[in-house]
């Protein structure tokens, strides 16, 4: 029998610690359902108090709605409390527009690549 991935698994979150910077690579669509997985993974890594900065790689994120924006801002608050910087990488046009409209891009920086983001920190 062939086992399939759960049909509703629309998001994949991979996290990695690079020095005191947490890199989260988000693949798929971020909405009120899938945001739970994102929050869970992010919080798991943010428990480590050494984490100061966050690089959010969105080059494979095809959609973010207002629930997703809320979750991103929630993580930003944690980073801000620690005096760190948050950088979002690889925004496709509509993702960029919603992050702009919501004011996220007033507080979160953007970079063209993960490498450039890490170089800035």
């Amino acid at each position: 029998m062939i086992r399939r991935r759960k049909e509703d698994e629309r998001v994949h979150v991979a996290a990695e610690l690079v020095g005191n910077t947490l890199v989260i690579r988000l693949q798929g669509e971020l909405d009120m359902h899938t945001v739970e997985e994102f929050k869970h993974e992010a919080e798991r890594y943010l428990m480590d108090k050494r984490v100061k900065n966050l690089v959010l790689v969105l080059s494979k994120t095809s959609l973010i709605d207002s629930s997703g924006v809320g979750a991103i801002l929630g993580r930003y608050r944690t980073i801000k409390e620690r005096g760190g910087t948050m950088i979002a990488v690889g925004l496709r046009p509509v993702v960029k527009r919603i992050l702009k409209l919501s004011g996220v891009l007033n507080v979160v920086e953007t970079a063209e690549s993960e490498r450039r983001a890490l170089a800035r920190l």
């Binding site: 909405d31 959609l63 709605d65 207002s66 509509v94 919603i98």
Partner: peptide
């Protein structure tokens, strides 16, 4: 366009959420 489809998807996502 991909952007138009993305816009439609986000709008539907908001109303249904």
């Amino acid at each position: 366009t991909v952007d138009q489809l993305d816009e439609i998807k986000v709008a539907v996502s908001e109303a249904v959420s």
